[in-house]
Design a protein around this nucleic acid. Structure first.
Lengths: 207, 207, 207, 207
DNA sequence: ACTTAAGCGAGACGGTACGTCAAGTCTTTCC
DNA sequence: GGAAAGACTTGACGTACCGTCTCGCTTAAGT
């Protein structure tokens, strides 16, 4: 993947430019939205020629994926000692990310574009979705090690459970914040965690 | 809203055109996606001049909102005798709507655009979100009349509950289908209904 | 050739624009030369959008041909009563045309480009060369009617004679003014006319 | 101009490169014309880095002047025993030079560019025009030594005569071949020589 | 039948961004 | 210090679409 191929020939790429461009992209995205984003504007903000953008990312889409992916790398699952606490923490983190104007503008537009463009879809999956899914997996593993959740009896069922939880968490938070346009207050997060934990309570009660 | 202004002067608008244009919009949307959609192309598909489009809708955004809203009017809440059945039915309906390529392409793009454009946001709310929210309300009312749910004790709490349920249902289904890209099979719908009903089970148990 | 095809559909082209664009082209050509001429600049000078240029002429070359051809239409052969006077008049006219900076910059560049591009070559021939060749023909006809020149005995020979005279007149004047960069003074024109008339003098002397 | 500075420091310039580059330039010129010629392409054809081109010639113009000038150095005036023979020989040589596609593409473009760029104009004069003018001078000197032409009585008149002859020969041949696009056949050359010699015949007759 | 007013198609218009390309410069590493 | 490689800035290219405009024509309703 990474070409470590010895000492490269020719003038090396300006190492600072990548960061400057992605930052400029997020800034422009926040101010102008997806529709208003232009390559020329990003280039000017980054203090770089338009051709330099195209040399590094083949299209506007790829550039935005990269810019947003960099942002989402921040998310992490901390083991806080209880499943409820862990869930509330990750939802809060995700919500705080979605409060940033640049993420708001970018995320839905990216998802929308990915609906039609298979390559973009793959890039979005790899760069954005999968890294988040690992949060659900980490949370489950922690809960299992604490005894809050039973160990997986069936691989397939477990996977389906992860998927449904992931879609529910991500989808609901996104919908609340970006579509309904309501903030994710601590109260709301608490209610939502209750909703998610209810099935487990039932299991626990039934045991 | 509706101009009742008697018998209008001049040549009346071609009544068929509206339908043809909206259909052409959905068709183009399905083929080309939001980004690839052009007014010129829609006009050609509808066999109509570009001017006619602009005479009826002030912009591309408005046109697409109208085209998608027309599609969403189909949704309805049938009282099937139990809350689980009602939920599964509405989720299935919503999922089937999101299977249509034109809806897929349009919905997220519309949400994305609405993030930046307050007027569009209002139109989306009015034309798309609110009509769906009434399904949740109708479902709750039916369940209450059947005794499956307690009557509202507090107006405010009830409203918050409706909101959270609405965001969860809409957000999760959208995320599963459009972002994760997985189909909403009967099994999945059933699992999801179980997740939603779990809190009620707890309430019921506690009563 | 001219499409008189009834009442045209759609918005008619701005009739003033053609003239404004061609004038702007000549102006820009004079200031910046062929290499410095840009479509965008012409558009700005003409107070017109760049797209309007491309809507009317498919390329920079065509535009310049049109601009220069319009200029060359001025040339005309007046019957001044003697062959020498006619020659001196047409040479002076041509020389005065080549004094204009815009013609200077354009003509050679156009000829150069035409060397490679067969379509352009054809356009240049039609629009620029042929109209000039008629001057030679008109001059010869006038001289014949005055008895200064014998009537054509052989069609083919006559045609070759016209060609050689035409190339000599046009080529020499262009070379003097644009390549050698010397002005065509009345003295020079007189000397050149003498050179051209010498063969006839010989004929006359031999009779 | 020529740096005689002993044994230079560092790696010496590749001596073959100059020739390879000029040849590549002419080749590219013949194939693509002036407008289509790119430095990058020349570099690739010559198997050389673009930097090397710029290290040796300051611009595209200079490179092409050098490439074309090299070609024109071939011309020479041979004393064939009579003025007519000498004239026909030099016209034929010049015509044969203008038959080469690379010269065709280059010459007019160079003249055109020189119209605007005083430095280029000077270079063109020095490298291309002057060397040709000496042919006319040599021819006249030979004719004078053979008694075909009177000795110069007036320096100034003689110079003007050389100029007019030079412009007529060069201009007419260039116009015939590059603008009119007709070949310079032996017949045509003969007719043209007759035209040039006519004034002398008159002088001779008058003597 | 005759006016009036709007709808309609066609297509030109001023803009703005696109993604590409070439010119000429700069910055590496290797020789 | 020359040379190859290739990244860099700049600026024009020709295209596409937007949303507006201006035509000539059509279609009713009101006279």
């Amino acid at each position: 993947m990474t070409p470590p191929s010895g000492p490269r020939k020719g003038r090396p790429r300006n190492a600072d430019a990548d960061g400057a461009i992605l930052a400029a992209t997020r800034e422009a995205l926040a101010e102008l939205g997806w529709g208003g984003l232009t390559m020329g504007d990003v280039a000017v903000r980054a203090g770089v020629a338009k051709t330099t953008l195209y040399r590094r990312w083949p299209s506007k889409n790829e550039l935005v994926v990269a810019a947003v992916a960099e942002q989402l790398d921040e998310l992490e699952m901390a083991d806080l000692g209880s499943l409820r606490a862990d869930i509330e923490a990750v939802v809060a983190q995700f919500a705080s990310l979605l409060s940033a104007p640049e993420t708001q503008a970018a995320l839905l537009a990216l998802f929308a574009e990915a609906t039609r463009d298979p390559l973009l879809r793959r890039r979005v999956r790899e760069a954005i979705i999968e890294p988040q899914k690992r949060l659900v997996l980490a949370g489950r593993a922690a809960a299992q090690s604490r005894g809050e959740l039973p160990l997986d009896t069936c691989e397939e069922t477990a996977s389906a459970a992860v998927d449904i939880i992931f879609d529910t968490v991500a989808g609901t938070v996104v919908h609340r914040m970006l579509v309904s346009g309501e903030p994710a207050t601590p109260d709301w997060i608490s209610s939502f965690a209750t909703l998610l934990l209810a099935p487990l309570a039932g299991i626990g009660a039934g045991t």
